[in-house]
Measured scan of single mutants.
Amino acid sequence: EESQDIKALQKELEQFAKLLKQKRITLGYTQADVGLTLGVLFGKVFSQTTICRFEALQLSFKNMCKLRPLLQKWVEEAD
């Protein structure tokens, strides 16, 4: 059922947002740094506010889903 899928996805997004924040802090990056690095990787800079709202799960579900693969890549590249 679709609502189950969405619930599962939301849970996954929550966990990912936590992971992103932990990783960012561990590596000593600011939210603005992450936004700028996305610009380098994908040619589209994201504001500190956007990263902040992603981490706080304050973006729309659709936006969270759109941003996630980009931030996933950041997490992979950041090591």
Rank of each mutant, 00 (worst) to 15 (best):
E1C: 11
E1I: 02
E1T: 06
E1Q: 13
E1D: 11
E2S: 12
S3Q: 15
S3F: 10
Q4I: 07
Q4T: 12
Q4S: 08
Q4F: 11
Q4D: 12
Q4N: 08
Q4P: 10
Q4C: 08
Q4M: 10
D5V: 12
D5Q: 03
D5A: 10
D5W: 00
D5Y: 05
D5C: 13
I6G: 10
I6D: 13
I6Y: 15
I6W: 06
I6L: 09
I6M: 13
I6F: 13
K7Q: 09
K7Y: 10
K7C: 10
K7G: 09
K7F: 08
A8T: 15
A8S: 14
A8Q: 14
L9V: 12
L9D: 06
L9W: 08
L9N: 10
L9K: 15
L9A: 11
L9I: 06
Q10F: 13
Q10K: 15
Q10D: 10
K11Q: 13
K11T: 05
K11Y: 13
K11D: 14
K11A: 09
K11C: 06
E12K: 15
E12Q: 09
E12W: 08
E12D: 06
E12Y: 05
E12R: 11
L13G: 02
L13S: 01
L13W: 03
E14Q: 11
E14I: 14
E14L: 09
E14Y: 13
E14P: 02
E14S: 06
Q15A: 14
Q15W: 05
Q15H: 08
Q15M: 09
F16C: 08
F16R: 05
F16T: 01
F16A: 09
A17E: 15
A17P: 06
K18C: 08
K18S: 14
K18M: 13
L19W: 09
L19E: 05
L19S: 11
L19M: 14
L20A: 02
L20E: 07
L20D: 00
L20S: 05
L20F: 15
K21G: 02
K21I: 00
K21P: 06
Q22W: 05
Q22H: 12
K23L: 03
K23T: 06
R24V: 11
R24C: 00
I25M: 13
I25Q: 15
I25L: 15
I25R: 11
T26M: 08
T26L: 12
T26R: 14
T26E: 12
L27M: 09
L27V: 03
L27W: 09
L27H: 05
L27S: 01
L27N: 05
L27I: 11
G28N: 06
G28D: 01
G28H: 15
Y29V: 08
Y29C: 02
Y29A: 05
Y29F: 01
Y29N: 02
Y29P: 05
T30L: 00
T30R: 08
T30H: 05
T30S: 13
T30G: 02
Q31K: 03
Q31T: 08
Q31A: 10
Q31S: 03
Q31M: 02
A32G: 08
A32P: 01
A32S: 10
D33Q: 15
D33I: 04
V34P: 13
V34I: 11
V34L: 08
V34W: 02
G35K: 07
G35A: 15
G35P: 05
G35L: 01
G35R: 07
L36F: 12
L36M: 14
L36W: 15
L36C: 13
T37Q: 15
T37F: 15
T37A: 15
T37I: 10
T37D: 15
T37E: 15
L38E: 02
L38A: 07
L38W: 08
G39C: 01
G39Q: 04
G39L: 00
G39A: 03
V40L: 11
V40Q: 15
V40E: 13
V40D: 02
V40H: 13
V40G: 12
V40M: 10
L41T: 11
L41P: 03
L41W: 12
F42H: 02
F42S: 11
F42R: 02
F42T: 14
G43W: 02
G43V: 03
G43Y: 08
G43H: 02
G43R: 03
G43E: 00
K44S: 01
V45K: 13
V45I: 02
V45M: 10
F46L: 14
F46P: 12
F46Q: 14
S47V: 00
Q48P: 13
Q48V: 10
Q48A: 14
Q48F: 06
Q48Y: 13
T49H: 13
T49F: 05
T49Q: 14
T49G: 08
T49E: 14
T49P: 07
T49Y: 07
T49S: 11
T49L: 05
T50D: 14
T50R: 01
T50Y: 07
I51P: 05
I51F: 04
I51Y: 05
I51M: 02
I51R: 03
C52W: 07
C52Q: 15
C52Y: 03
C52S: 15
R53E: 11
R53G: 05
R53N: 08
F54T: 13
F54V: 02
E55H: 04
E55G: 02
A56S: 12
A56E: 13
A56H: 08
L57I: 09
L57F: 13
L57D: 04
L57N: 15
L57H: 15
Q58C: 00
Q58L: 05
Q58E: 14
L59C: 12
L59Q: 00
L59H: 04
L59A: 01
L59S: 04
S60I: 07
S60K: 01
S60G: 08
S60L: 08
S60E: 09
S60A: 07
F61G: 04
F61K: 08
F61M: 12
K62A: 12
K62T: 11
K62G: 09
N63I: 08
N63R: 12
N63C: 07
M64S: 05
M64L: 06
M64Y: 00
C65Y: 05
C65F: 14
C65T: 05
C65H: 00
K66A: 12
K66E: 13
K66C: 01
L67G: 02
L67T: 04
L67W: 00
L67P: 00
R68G: 01
R68A: 08
R68H: 00
R68V: 03
R68K: 09
R68C: 05
R68D: 02
P69H: 08
P69A: 08
P69F: 04
P69D: 00
P69G: 10
P69R: 02
P69Q: 02
P69V: 05
P69S: 04
L70Q: 14
L70I: 06
L70G: 03
L70P: 06
L70M: 11
L70R: 02
L70A: 12
L71R: 04
L71F: 03
L71T: 08
L71P: 11
L71C: 04
L71D: 00
Q72S: 06
Q72G: 07
Q72R: 07
Q72V: 06
K73L: 07
K73T: 10
K73S: 02
K73V: 06
K73Q: 10
W74Y: 01
W74F: 10
W74D: 05
V75T: 07
V75L: 14
V75Q: 08
E76K: 10
E77K: 11
E77R: 10
E77G: 10
E77D: 10
A78D: 01
A78R: 07
A78E: 11
D79H: 13
D79C: 04
